[in-house]
Design a protein around this nucleic acid. Sequence first.
DNA 1: TCACTGATCGTCT
DNA 2: GACGATCAGTGAG
Length: 202
Amino acid sequence: MPRDPVLKPLKRADLPVETVALARFLVGATIVHDLPEGLVAARIVETEAYLPDDPASHTYRGPTARNAPMFGARGHAYVYLNYGMYWLFNISSDIPGIGAGVLIRAAEPVAGEAIMADRRPGRSGRGLLNGPGKLAAAMGIGPAHSGADLCAGGPLRLAHAVRPAGEIGVSTRIGLTKAADLPLRFFERGNPWLSGPKALNR
DNA sequence: TCACTGATCGTCT
DNA sequence: GACGATCAGTGAG
């Protein structure tokens, strides 16, 4: 992990508008969060796209109070509680009025690894960020961030890749009961911080 | 490494 | 009132 990572902010204009393009683009990009204990940063290694006409997407049945951020301009956070226990972090995509976004599933530490480990008692190393619920917990991302603009220089924001992404692999999404066969999961091939079964990471 | 299971609760039907 | 974009623990191969 670089000792002095350069975390250059991503502007909205840097983000592809289309959801699949954004999901691919975000592999390699950096999530930065200023926490009371210090700054944490992680390099995204795995994403999933959720499309407007996608039965698996929360936006499939139209806008609600909860999913409103997904209908906003690209680059906003949509955070929601899953299975009554875990917060999942998404980034909205497409133009305002279209409900779509990208789930951030896994990342590797870039800065503040000790801080992230402290937020996941009893866990460390590769078990720290290899899953959407774990990632949000370790990075201190919660309901207060839903709707936040990640391109506005706030505490939670996006930054350029500290290291270019390697070859991008594609697979079906994980954990779905609807539209489970669509190839909308994107990941950096060979990266040790990925979630999911080995067979999906080729 | 994989398959299976219980935990737990906000959101929408 | 049912349903999850999950995780950790357990047990088998």
